[in-house]
Design a binder for these strands. Structure first.
Lengths: 131, 131
DNA sequence: CAGAATCCGTTTAGATACTG
DNA sequence: CAGTATCTAAACGGATTCTG
């Protein structure tokens, strides 16, 4: 019953390593949330700012550009009669495929929210920092 | 076939929102990777530094402390005869349960690595930044 | 409306050297 | 061996202002 001790691959920080890919693409605060917000269909720039109302336009723009660059989100400018612009962001098929494991991760978080909060509380209360 | 337009919840940045939890706990560069490295059993501090060989001891320590605080990783000091210490890190049951959706996410990354690289290449090559 | 530009504080990471 | 301490650079995030 000893734990297996297979050697770990030595390339986990390689950008081409799928395991490293996750923090590379979702290591920021907003990417996963934006994808989540697009799950029900296209959204406009200002629509996205509602659920993410803390995010500044600069940060949202940067996040959307990054997702667009990786082919997860598409950006569409719709013609309007008014002088104001209408830009819609939507998940690409690739982005939509990501929604599956991402939703599973959210489900895990929802299931274990209590555990996480309890653990944190216990840690704060009890443990002293290690020497 | 219009996309559904259900209103989005307005609390996505709330720390208690499971969706917000992901970037909160995995918004850093190393957490997911460390969990991944512990999947086959306990590892020592310096063992973890092999696959993550870019990480400085300071950063690894901080990451491990955070995971420990959230109840995902346990820290065990084993008695030794030598004056050198022996500390092992392992996934807790909670951490192990996280491995399931996390592995699914890695599988997605592995499956779509090409797509991501292609999209990025196409973006760099073609598109000019939006005006 | 959608975003670009600017400024600024905080966080994160990395390198290095040192210690029980 | 398993960290801690210190310093520095870069990235990230947020607020605000401005414009096509």
């Amino acid at each position: 019953m000893a734990a297996t001790r297979a050697p770990l691959p030595a390339d986990l920080f390689d950008e081409l390593c799928p395991s490293a890919l996750i923090p590379f693409r979702f290591g920021d605060k907003w990417s996963a949330l934006v994808i989540h917000c697009l799950r029900d269909g296209p959204r406009r720039f200002s629509e996205l700012r509602v659920p993410l109302r803390r995010v500044s336009p600069k940060v949202l723009t940067r996040t959307l550009r990054a997702l667009e660059r990786d082919g997860l989100v598409s950006r569409t400018v719709r013609p309007t009669t008014t002088p104001t612009r209408h830009v819609e962001y939507a998940l690409t098929p690739l982005g939509r495929s990501l929604l599956v494991p991402l939703t599973a991760l959210y489900a895990w978080a929802a299931d274990h929210l209590e555990d996480l909060m309890d653990a944190r509380e216990a840690y704060e209360g009890g443990e002293a920092p290690h020497g």
